[in-house]
Design a protein around this nucleic acid. Structure first.
Lengths: 248, 248
DNA sequence: GAGCTTCCTTGACCCAGATCAACCTTAGTA
DNA sequence: TACTAAGGTTGATCTGGGTCAAGGAAGCTC
């Protein structure tokens, strides 16, 4: 997704050498725990753009940690257009919503060439049996995702198109920053239509709002290359009191 | 919330005698595990309508299992109207989104007289150390909530007001059914404004749509007493292909 | 039982954003 | 080099549902 995340065939399996180690699941494990963790981890495998990592309704077996690249989760509903519910960046965990169900909730598809580490869940549970750190890391990840989803629900139900886009861009920017990529300039691996689906907007609206942001000097967009020019203004916009049904 | 859920002062602490046992956290625990579980559980305490169980930004200490009654989670955002993100019914767990953060994400307030059981989280973790069942129950609960939130995101971003209301009513109905209450007739413990906030609609819209559903013979509403008259039609409406940006 | 307050309903109006449509750019491929 | 397809932009039009406003009903308190 960000330049540095691309086209790096990952040969090294060991977690402690992974660039995402600091924000991935095994963070904080003792050395011996880390070795057991490495042992259950399936060799990173490359996915090509458009290739599915898991399919909606497929049986749930594993969690996947994104090593490089990016993915989207899409949920197909009876007779409706697919809906995008998540974008995954390096260091993030795919599949948490499948635990405790035999089936996967949505499909997860690579947005670009992407490497993921597979973590068979039953083995992970065995490991967690003897590692309080791993247990609490698992809780932490799920809980964080719960909070993110709630934030998303607030965004979707109360905010204007401008505010949604501003929040989206800032959210991406923060995630890139946390991963050591530039927070100000990044590549959007998803299409306008993906963004629209994720934010509950028509793709035309996404395109128009981005054009307006550019005209207002908030961002600079060239296709999928995004530069945040006036971060403070974006932040002010995203947090602005006046959303829909915001009363006063 | 449903008639049978009200006004039952709960004297009995023991989980296995609780009416919600079959869908609560300690489900499936061995007898000795259940005893340890009972031991860490704080005596159910009554909350009056409007009373807060946890406050946004307050420190996270415990999960709470709803024993009877109902609650809402509200999130206050900088200068915006509060937003409702969840309703909790008997047997459901409050507080999962606070794990791994020191602070509570939103406030949780009783919608009517409500009894909850407090589960201090560090003690719960200790217990989970030696109970695979409890661990997997915890994962299961969190994962289920993740899926619910995602369903909610889909609802909020792609569906019309009619579809949102229909889904909301059916969702409540299913939850009541699972709890042994009537799925066809129930009491709404939340106001129209609460429903609107939860569904991303103006309260006037909620009122109008309910009136229309009544006129169409889908439901019968008298204040907060709700009867689902034509469940199939509601289901058809909720799943209908034609939402917003549904193409075709 | 008068007067609040809170909740709900209904009507009138309006606008943000969906939809429809045309066209442009870029990339893949034959 | 042309042909097709996918993605993106921009304009014109329409509408679902938000906002404002005026009452009504039901439950408090004094």
């Amino acid at each position: 997704m960000a330049e540095s995340g691309r086209c790096q065939p990952v040969k090294e399996t060991r977690c402690e050498l992974c660039s995402q180690h600091a924000r991935c699941l095994p963070l904080g494990l003792e050395l011996n725990e880390l070795e057991s963790f490495d042992a259950i981890l399936q060799r990173p495998r490359p996915l090509k753009r458009g290739e599915a990592l898991v399919r909606q309704g497929g049986s749930f077996e594993s969690l996947y940690a994104v090593r490089s690249g990016s993915l989207k989760q899409t949920v197909a509903q009876e007779g409706q257009r697919d809906q995008i519910t998540h974008f995954y960046l390096p260091g993030e965990l795919v599949g948490l919503d499948g635990i405790g169900e035999s089936r996967c909730y949505g499909s997860v598809v690579a947005l670009e060439t992407t490497f993921v580490c597979e973590l068979p869940f039953t083995r992970l549970e065995d490991l967690a049996e003897h590692s309080p750190t791993l247990r609490s890391q698992l809780y932490r990840c799920m809980s964080r995702e719960l909070r993110n989803d709630q934030r998303m629900m607030c965004l979707l139900s109360g905010r204007t198109a401008d505010q949604r886009l501003a929040s989206f861009l800032l959210g991406l920017s923060n995630r890139f920053r946390a991963r050591g990529f530039s927070p100000a300039r990044f590549h959007l691996s998803m299409s306008r239509s993906d963004i629209g689906s994720y934010l509950g907007l028509a793709l035309e609206t996404v395109s128009r709002v981005l054009a307006r942001f550019q005209a207002q000097g908030l961002v600079s967009v060239e296709g999928r290359e995004m530069t945040l020019v006036d971060r403070d203004a974006l932040l002010a916009l995203a947090e602005e009191g006046a959303g829909r049904h915001s009363g006063v």
